[in-house]
Design a protein around this nucleic acid. Sequence first.
DNA 1: ATGAAGATTGCCT
DNA 2: GGCAATCTTCATG
Length: 227
Amino acid sequence: MPISRDFFARHAVEVAPDLLGCVLEHQTEAGLVAVELTEVEAYAGRSDPASHAYRGKTRRNAVMFGPPGHAYVYFTYGMHFCVNMVCLGEEGSASAVLLRAGAIIEGEDLARARRTRGTARVASRDLARGPARLCQALDIDLRLDGADVCAAESPLQVRAGAGNPVSSAALAARGDDPPGTPRRIATGPRVGVSSAADIPWRFWVDGDPTVSVYRAHVPKRPKLVTP
DNA sequence: ATGAAGATTGCCT
DNA sequence: GGCAATCTTCATG
């Protein structure tokens, strides 16, 4: 059973930490690959300068303005895809959660084959460590832009984490787990974002090896022209 | 029309 | 740690 649409019908900042520990899976002809999410980021709409929805609806971000529980996939840097879960934005606005990293829990061989370039072996922890890597491991591209992740017949779905009604990581962070559970949710500024860098809307499972390394935004230096 | 920057990654020193 | 790859989107003239 996919997760219910109500889960996504909240603001992204509320949904984001609850997604940690949930499972994203993509069924293709080649097979199934599933990841348990360990790192996400929330993006709002009009009020968030770092959001793709900040300047209103365009062809690229149209899905963000649609109903919650759908995948918003975009192409960036001329070569990479990133995937978001659409949530409920403010009126006439939009919000979504960027899936930044996860641990492969099913279909590791297939994921590794997709991620392998040349002969170097990709370490397990690196298979979906980073938003573009996650998409490559699950073979997510623009064909899945707008896909309903709450529909049972959808090739791309989100499920609750094993053994928990919502998210094992989120429950652990709330202190509802049995003593000894090491997982806690950490928060901090979003990665690679130039504006609103002070807003801590990045959430990750503290200490998890599949969480991507933090990189602050670095503006490109203008080309120097020699006379 | 033209140019710069981007929710990134991999390879080089 | 620095930079190229590669193309879409957005700002400016």
